[in-house]
Amino acid sequence: MTTAFDFTVKDINGKPQKLAKYKGKTLLIVNTASKCGFTPQYKGLQALHDKYHEQGLEVLGFPCNQFGEQEPGDESEIASFCDLNYGVNFPMFAKVDVNGDNAAPLFEHLKEEAPGLLGSKNVKWNFTKFLVTPDGKVKRFAPQDEPASLAKDIEKALG
């Protein structure tokens, strides 16, 4: 069975990264944007990372420009923005598409494993969150779900 840990993605510097390096951990995979009403969620995502990283949580940010062109910058601009404005030190990756013909295979997998409301597969907006347990099970959270509201699910996934 394929899990999120089977994919290779490009980090924010364009270098391939095998998600297998996170095997045995809990992942919170988020499509992010720097110019979105939900952008302040970076602060909450960083707080989750700070609180649970030692217990095995990895927050992974994937910038996406598909929703209202709210992530127009290049990777170096995105990395700088996240660091300067939110002190982000969890892993950030290269910009991806999450829907459509050019959707990243990782997001195709996540959408298949955890459809949205009424079985919808597409990601609806920036800051959709996918919680991946160490055994590869996926749970989806809506953009408006504040990161702190995921704490109980994260704790359960961490065991």
Rank of each mutant, 00 (worst) to 15 (best):
I12A: 07
K35L: 14
L110P: 06
Y86E: 10
L84D: 09
V138Y: 05
V96P: 11
V9P: 04
D50M: 04
N102D: 14
K156Y: 01
K10G: 03
K137Q: 11
Y52I: 08
L27A: 06
L131T: 05
A142H: 02
W125H: 03
S120G: 12
E113W: 10
E146F: 03
P63K: 01
D74S: 04
S120H: 01
A104H: 14
K23H: 09
K124R: 06
F130Q: 02
P91C: 08
S34D: 07
F38P: 10
F93E: 07
F5H: 11
P134V: 07
Y86W: 11
A4C: 06
F38G: 11
E58N: 09
E155N: 00
P16S: 04
K152D: 14
L45K: 04
F67A: 03
V123I: 15
K95I: 08
K137F: 00
K137I: 02
F7P: 05
D135Q: 12
D135T: 14
G119Y: 06
Q55H: 12
G87W: 13
P147C: 06
Y42Q: 09
E155V: 02
E108W: 01
E69H: 05
S80N: 03
C36D: 15
E155A: 04
G116P: 08
P115K: 12
Q41K: 13
F62C: 06
G61K: 04
P147W: 09
F141Q: 06
P105V: 13
P40Y: 12
A148K: 14
K95N: 13
L28A: 07
Y52C: 10
Q55N: 10
K18N: 12
A157H: 00
P115Q: 11
E155G: 01
N65L: 02
A33V: 14
W125Y: 00
S149L: 08
L106E: 09
T32C: 09
Q46H: 08
Y22F: 15
K25S: 08
H53A: 14
E112L: 14
L117C: 01
A47D: 12
Y52T: 09
K43D: 10
D153C: 06
M92K: 12
C82R: 11
A151P: 03
P91L: 08
A104Y: 03
H109N: 06
P105S: 13
G119S: 04
Q70V: 05
S34T: 15
G100H: 12
W125Q: 02
Q144Y: 10
T26P: 01
D6A: 07
T8K: 10
G136F: 02
F130A: 04
L106Y: 09
K43L: 02
K111G: 07
G14E: 00
C82M: 05
K51Y: 08
G37N: 13
N31G: 09
A148V: 04
T2M: 10
L45V: 06
A103Q: 13
T26Y: 04
S149M: 11
K121Y: 02
A94E: 13
S149Q: 14
K129H: 01
F90V: 12
T26W: 00
L60C: 03
D153Q: 04
A148L: 06
G73N: 03
